Amino acid sequence: MMHTDPSSIVLQDLYTKMLLTRIVDNCMLWLYTEGYIDFVSSCRGHEATQVGSATCIQVGQDFTLPFYRDLGVVLTIGMTPYEIFRTSLQTQRQQAGSPDGFQAPLQYWGYHKHNTITGSAPVATQLLHAAGIAFACKLRKAAVVTVAYCGDDATTEPDFQEGIQFAAMHQLPVVFICEQDCTQFYSTKQSTTSQAPSCLHAEALPPHLLYQRIDGMDSVAVYSATLRAMQAAREGHGPTLLEMAVTRSLPTVPLPQSEDPSTVVHGLPSLSNAGTLLDPLVRCQHTLQERGMWNDEWATQLSKRMMTEVERALQDALRDTLQSK
């Protein structure tokens, strides 16, 4: 049996990438509140699902089809904070100059040098694209896995059923990851995320499709489940659908109304006061502490370094965009 429990190095890497995702997400929200961009979909609460799963992807070999909220996925794949800020700012500028007033969503990610496929505006179409890519990889007998992400709103679309049906029928090397938002259930029932009803309870899943529901706030559970699904697909055992239950949250402090982008970076609250175990970063920190892997000095230095790097990337992206003609 394959060992899927993350090592201390992998677990610290998960925490590092989740922290990076949180800081970049804060900056994207700042760009929105200051009017630099007109659209943003925060991934706060999704970090464990996105980073934990994307860490299992073999970058440059496997194919990834994220959906618009998957900031943590594209950062883990290798897109830099500067590239994220610059792309969003440039797209905003192009929309502002569009003669017909066409407004396209800003966060349909594409990173072709790492086999990350740009999504389209209609919900769930990326699942059909993923099935097609996986079918081509199977015909070529390539040891490649395709990973497609979606939100729970995609599960009611015909494209969702068509994608998973086709993948199951042909036993394709593809992993579908559905990020289910359980925020409303938690706020009304005062229960845990894992006890929320599945968003797939009314859907008929095809035979020969492996399915598992995961606590999407637990980076270890997400990493282990995705690693098993990726290995099964790579060995020719067919597709897997992973339903990740997450709880979204808003920033713990109001975003600053300031022209200085550094305030949003240095205004990030201490994770020790960031909330309950519903926060994926706090969950990961507790796991590291339980395993004797947590070091306060390491965490402090990591936070300072990443804040400085992201602040520089944000300032550079603003400068380059404003100076470009």
Rank of each mutant, 00 (worst) to 15 (best):
M2F: 01
M2T: 08
P6T: 04
P6M: 03
K17H: 10
L20I: 14
L20M: 11
I23H: 00
V24I: 11
D38Y: 04
R44Q: 06
A48G: 01
Q50F: 07
S53K: 09
A54T: 06
V59T: 10
Q61N: 14
F63K: 00
F67D: 03
Y68F: 14
G72P: 02
I77H: 02
T87S: 15
T87P: 06
T91A: 14
Q92L: 12
Q92W: 05
R93Y: 11
Q95G: 09
A96S: 13
F102R: 14
F102S: 12
Q103W: 11
A104K: 13
P105I: 15
L106P: 00
Y108G: 03
W109M: 07
G110V: 12
Y111V: 08
H112F: 15
K113M: 14
H114G: 06
N115F: 02
A121E: 10
T125K: 07
A131L: 09
A131C: 08
A134M: 05
C137A: 15
K138E: 09
K138Q: 14
R140T: 04
K141I: 13
K141G: 12
A142H: 12
Y149N: 07
D153P: 00
E162F: 07
Q165H: 13
Q171I: 10
C178M: 13
Q180F: 02
C182E: 03
F185P: 00
Y186F: 10
K189F: 10
Q190S: 09
Q190H: 12
T192R: 07
Q195F: 02
S198L: 07
L200R: 04
A204F: 11
P207L: 13
L210H: 08
V220M: 05
V222K: 00
S224H: 02
T226Y: 02
Q231L: 10
A233F: 01
E235F: 05
H237A: 11
T240Q: 04
L242N: 03
E243G: 10
A245D: 05
T252V: 15
P254I: 09
P254H: 00
Q257K: 13
D260R: 08
H266I: 10
H266A: 09
G267S: 07
P269M: 08
L271R: 03
A274R: 01
L278V: 08
P280V: 15
L281V: 04
H286Q: 12
E290H: 02
G292L: 04
N295P: 02
W298T: 06
A299C: 11
L302V: 08
S303L: 15
R305L: 12
E309D: 12
L314P: 00
R319V: 12
